[in-house]
């Protein structure tokens, strides 16, 4: 137990990264507001960045920039930071793209709440379906309801 606690304290960045990651995932999966989902994604990605950068860190190391006056210096590993720069670029593009989608949805439905959007869409679909059914009957059409149910379960 004591060893475990010691390990936890020594490796605290990993611990916090995991906590942040879980917060992010929880936000993405449980919030119905699209902006909050996006925030969750960003928190989650930051957690991964912290994880990587912590992996590259060396206690007492200096920045990985060549300094000829200090030949004995220990440099931290620059590779994870460089990798995370790529990760940040990806995260920026994801954020921008998601924002433009949210704006599109907001202009269309007047709300940025996933649940309300799904409700509006389903009721519209049902009305269209009903109208179509009145117009034209076909034996293969009896399964429409189950399709609707599937539809709703697709919302996260």
């Amino acid at each position: 137990m004591r060893i475990l606690l010691e390990k936890l304290i020594v490796n605290y960045p990993y611990f916090f990264a995991v906590i942040l990651f879980v917060i992010g995932v929880l936000t993405v999966l449980t919030r119905s507001n699209l902006f909050k989902k996006l925030l969750g994604i960003n928190i989650m990605e930051s957690a991964v960045f912290i994880l990587f950068i912590a992996a590259g860190n060396i206690r007492g190391g200096t920045d990985p920039i060549l300094d000829t006056s200090k030949p004995e210096a220990v440099y931290i590993n620059p590779l994870p930071s460089a990798l995370m720069l790529t990760g940040i670029v990806v995260s920026v593009s994801v954020t921008a793209f998601a924002l433009s989608l949210i704006i599109r949805l907001y202009r269309e439905y007047g709300t940025a709440d996933a649940r309300q959007i799904a409700q509006m869409r389903n009721s519209a679909l049902k009305a269209a379906d009903q109208a179509g059914r009145d117009n034209y009957r076909h034996p293969d059409r009896s399964n429409g309801k189950r399709g609707d149910k599937n539809d709703r379960s697709n919302q996260i």
């Binding site: 921008a96 924002l99 433009s100 704006i103 599109r104 202009r107």
Partner: peptide, 10 residues
Amino acid sequence: TIFFTLMEDE
């Protein structure tokens, strides 16, 4: 471009 796209969408 991203900035302009987002601003003009608004």
